[in-house]
Design a protein around this nucleic acid. Structure first.
Lengths: 141, 141
DNA sequence: GGTGTATGATTGACTTCGCAACTATACCAC
DNA sequence: GTGGTATAGTTGCGAAGTCAATCATACACC
């Protein structure tokens, strides 16, 4: 049980610290950052709404609202899907890409300081494996 | 970086699953459960508001509101502090204790199924150590 | 003892997110 | 094609949490 509490504790503290740093230095939320990052890595820098929801572990309405916000800041644009007219793509704009690149040093430094650096390298790898298997087998909705 | 993403992923999925199960079977949120649990373990089953905020990694106003909710359900009562009249205790009521005991099997089963059981016992221990050190050294506000 | 600052808790305004309901489109069966 | 069901996304509403401001009390210093 101690491991579980440590897990919750670590998550809460790190997430809060990263959020605060990103907000202070870059005026961006962690959620927004993560979405921009996923989009930047995606093919043609675009993803379907539901894909965003899945990767972010967000409800579908949650995805709608994140993209709403990002679209208002012109970091992302919506493109309706040709092949399935119910669907929509969210695509990273150039401004969005620049914004992401601008913010990433802050984020990477934060993750390093609060997470990587505290964990021995060999343990980091085992930890990744364990957590991946935990996430993998967890009910997907 | 993969370790960090796995960490986020695992947290999001497990927390969501536990929340859903607890809500479905016991009509209780995870946040409320955790507060009741901390209170049950505390001396005289009571804690100061700010202590609750710290342990839950919540803002002070957040703590006020959780206790508001629990007080409305009569699972907790507020007692003004004798020695520092600005302060307040939140104390678990008997009903609150029964509610906690009623809900704990659901929660424990969930943590076991989604977390413990997926991680080899020896790794679980190393993981706890790593995460504790991570949480420990994280800026406390 | 009076003044100034720090601290515990609460409140109001706001943001974010989930659920349930809804719309629009796709797909399947006949 | 028509009807029924499933899926993609959005929207209204409510729940929960934050920040900044506020109030009351404590504490320190002169």
């Amino acid at each position: 049980m101690a491991a579980w509490r440590a897990f919750l504790m670590a998550h809460a503290r790190i997430a809060r610290a990263l959020e605060a740093e990103l907000q202070a230095e870059q005026g961006m939320s962690l959620a927004d950052y993560e979405v921009l990052l996923q989009l930047a890595r995606a093919d043609e820098r675009r993803m379907r709404m539901s894909e965003i929801a899945d990767r972010m572990i967000l409800s579908r309405s949650g995805a709608t609202r994140v993209v709403d916000r990002l679209e208002r800041s012109e970091l992302v644009r919506r493109i309706s899907c040709e092949s399935d007219r119910r669907g929509a793509w969210a695509q990273l704009t150039d401004a969005g890409y620049r914004r992401l690149r601008g913010a990433s040093p802050t984020h990477l430094r934060g993750v390093a300081r609060h997470f990587w650096d505290k964990i021995p390298a060999d343990e980091l790898d085992r930890l990744r494996e364990s957590l991946e298997s935990v996430a993998e087998e967890c009910p997907r909705d």
